[in-house]
Design a protein around this nucleic acid. Structure first.
Lengths: 206, 206
DNA sequence: GGATGTGAATGTCTTCACAGCT
DNA sequence: AGCTGTGAAGACATTCACATCC
């Protein structure tokens, strides 16, 4: 399959959420127009995004909601569940571990890791905090699909190397440093300060 | 000033962080090449990004680190401090309120708001949780530059309307719904589930 | 020599317009 | 008539190449 833009994938994820909303409201059929309106985008954009993956609609009618939901779940890889580990049990790790939406979407957090003895052995909402020294052995026993890196800047690259060596191929990075990984590993970088800075830029330039 | 792409602004913010790192290491001068290497981008990209705002380097030499830091801080609007309110004192709001990097970057959280009586009156690390009913009056007395919306989906649009009416012109939205705002208000949407979904897409397509 | 700054070329994403199906 | 699906046009972003200056 040819390369799909990240922006397109993000919109597909948005469409899926909107469609589930429509389904919940009992709507059976939806037009690209209606989806676009609710998603803050345009109808041609919706159709183009979907057309990269096939023809899911009916001309003159629109899209059948349940069908499009399952198509999108399939495209996004959401028909299966994922094992997720969190590395770093600080503020960010803790907030993410307790985040209900993850589990309800099929992203199951198997454990959190830290090296602080005061935290090891405790648990948050059923998620155990384990010694980061055990990370490699644990992953050998129970591989993870996705890792969330929520450690301080210095520790991020070393722990990433260990995760990659253990077979993790997708990483959500909250540490404020770019991570170096092999080409077959995907990294998404999240940085709240940077988001606020884009807002301060917007406030300044008018 | 002509319109600058969001991707450019995000990179400027990245460059600033990297430059502060270089400064901390005692580096006085840096080339676009060196910045690019550390930031995971390319040298022409760095030069182009900067050139939208002026000529800050010295041919043959590179950029003087302290000067470029202050130029970037100026461009990004970081020479001043910002008053930030958080609406919604759940898991997300709490994690953000306790997030040290905000204050150290000049984003000062003045208060958090909720309507749960069990939370109102408590405080997190010196940040008071106040009754959301007081939001409008409080903002009239002490205007906020930026609001962080961390309430459930249903409540997001109504509270946004109140924030906008109270003069807030920049919003960081954690609620899983697009927010409608006037054209002079900037909204940044943050959604962790969506980030994980782009990772599951990446895992699925290879 | 070495590195910036930038117009031009290339590549990528979005928008448009309309043929084609229901 | 209504709405999708898509090739083509247009807008936008990135990369390149090189003139320019220290």
């Amino acid at each position: 399959m040819r390369k799909i833009a990240d922006s397109t994938v993000r919109r597909l994820s948005l469409y899926l959420r909107l469609l589930e909303e429509f389904a919940h409201e009992g709507v059976e059929t939806v037009s690209s127009q209606a989806l676009a309106r609710r998603g803050g985008t345009t109808a041609p954009q919706v159709r183009k995004d979907l057309s990269f993956f096939g023809s899911f609609g009916m001309r003159g009618m629109g899209y059948r909601v349940p069908e499009l939901v399952s198509r999108l779940r399939d495209i996004l890889g959401l028909e299966r569940e994922y094992v997720v580990v969190i590395v770093g049990a600080g503020k960010v790790g803790s907030a993410l571990a307790q985040f209900r939406e993850f589990a309800s979407r099929g992203f199951n957090i198997s454990a959190a890791y830290d090296h602080d003895p005061a935290k090891i052995g405790r648990e948050w909402e059923g998620i155990a905090i384990r010694d980061v020294a055990r990370l490699d052995r644990d992953l050998a026993a129970r591989p993870a699909d996705i890792a969330i890196v929520a450690v301080p800047a210095e520790g991020a690259q070393p722990v990433t190397d260990r995760l990659v060596a253990a077979g993790v191929r997708a990483i959500l990075n909250f540490a404020p440093v770019p991570l170096a990984v092999p080409a077959d590993v995907t990294v998404k970088h999240v940085n709240m300060v940077l988001e606020l800075e884009t807002l301060s830029y917007a406030l300044r330039h008018r």
